[in-house]
Simulated assay, not measured.
Amino acid sequence: MLIIRPIRASDFDALYRIAVESGHGFTSLPVNEELLRRKIARSEASFQKVVETPYDEGYLMVLEDTQTQQVVGTCALEAAVGMEDAFYHYRLGTEVYHSEQIHVRNEVETLTLCHDYTGAAELCTLFLREDYRKDNNGRMLSRSRFLFLAQHPSRFGETVIAEMRGVSDEKGNSPFYGWLQKHFLGIDFVEADYLSGLGRKAFMAEMMPRNPVYVCLLPEEAQKVIGEVHTNTRPAISLLRAEGFRCRGYVDIFDGGPTVECNLQDIRGVRESRLLTVRIGDMPASEDSFILSNTQLADYRATSAELVVSSDSDEVILSPELAAGLLVSDGEQVRVLAI
């Protein structure tokens, strides 16, 4: 059985392996032992914390294969970004130049550094090891976060965002970043991305262009990738678009990848999830697959299964094994969502 649960200190070695495997551009898991241990400790504290208003909590979860007892994936939610560290984006805009005298009108795209998403919740740190990229495991891992959002909405900002990985080559070089390195930062993309992942962001405020950047003045290869996603990220952005996420003109300051957003209550998976009462017994045969989770916080568990779910009933039958994996008893509730 594949079970999603909160990360714990004993998962450090597995998390470090995933950080190495995820490669360049996966900013939320830099290969740094101290930072990864801090991430685990922060997540453990967040799952235990009494929250009145979302602030800087982070909920990092792992996907465990209970048969092998191996951690094979991760997913996470940030409660409210930018509350402790600056959270930068470029906002795409348009400047209009018009002259009646010479009968010329030009519209010029601009990129302006901003902090507009401060306080938004964030979907992040989605990674699945290659051997498990099958049987809807990736979809289950990604969409399981909507069950957690639906169950605990007061712990998150009203807007939910996801930063999509931008275009880069196999060595981690970004066409968008090249001009920034040459004229402003002076360090390569991999180092800048790594420092950002460590939370060492002072150099951004010190070295980034303070005035709007005219897109037409950028090299052609940089212009082409603004708002485009990395090849490996296409399935992820397709899934989020189906959930109602849209790009509102914000892109990553390093690789130009798009950031998508949706109001928490408007996310399809949040709206369509249902609370059902558990009855433990022999599960009837079904070909309908669902993601299901318990309603707990520190002992949160989620998985997928083929269930019989009826619009006419508020009950669902779970096998003893499945109920045990979700830490639920007869008469308790689970939240379900069709895969």
Rank of each mutant, 00 (worst) to 15 (best):
L326R: 04
M207S: 09
L218Q: 05
V160E: 10
H89I: 06
K134H: 14
A120L: 08
Q101N: 08
M283E: 15
S142C: 14
L185D: 01
R133H: 02
E332P: 02
A323F: 04
D252T: 10
K39N: 03
V104Y: 03
D282K: 10
R139V: 12
L264G: 02
K201M: 03
A302P: 00
E220D: 13
W179V: 06
P30D: 01
K182F: 12
Y55V: 05
N263F: 05
V160P: 14
T125S: 15
S196M: 11
Y194A: 08
E272G: 01
T118V: 11
V20A: 09
P258E: 11
V20Y: 11
F189R: 02
G281I: 05
E321Y: 10
D116H: 14
F127L: 11
D13I: 12
I339N: 10
A162C: 15
L141P: 07
T110S: 14
P153Q: 13
H89T: 11
S293D: 04
G256M: 10
G178W: 09
M140W: 01
M140R: 04
I237V: 15
Q69F: 03
A285C: 04
N136V: 02
P235K: 01
R268Q: 13
R210G: 06
I161M: 11
S28I: 02
A202N: 07
E191T: 14
C216F: 06
V308N: 07
A323G: 04
D299L: 10
Q69P: 00
A222P: 01
F148Q: 00
A202K: 14
T233K: 00
A121E: 09
T27C: 06
N136W: 06
E170L: 13
E130T: 10
L141T: 06
V167K: 07
A222F: 06
E21Y: 13
I339H: 06
R133M: 03
R42M: 10
D56V: 02
S304V: 00
E191P: 04
L113V: 02
F245M: 05
Y177F: 15
Q69V: 00
G325N: 15
V213R: 03
R200Y: 11
V108C: 11
D314R: 08
M140P: 01
D169R: 00
I339Q: 08
T277Y: 01
Y88H: 10
D65W: 08
S238Q: 13
C75V: 05
L35A: 07
G58C: 10
S238R: 12
F156P: 01
G23P: 03
V316M: 01
I339E: 09
L180I: 12
E315T: 06
A298L: 05
C216Y: 09
D116Q: 13
Y194G: 08
G227E: 07
D312N: 12
H98G: 12
L322I: 03
L29V: 13
R155A: 11
A45R: 13
S22K: 03
E21G: 07
I4M: 07
A76N: 01
Q333W: 00
S293C: 01
R271D: 09
A222G: 04
V229H: 00
R210H: 13
H98N: 06
Y194L: 06
I280E: 04
G25D: 02
V251R: 00
P6Q: 02
S99I: 09
Q265I: 12
I317Q: 01
V71E: 03
I161S: 08
M283C: 09
A9S: 12
G269W: 05
Y117M: 11
V229G: 05
P175F: 07
I18M: 04
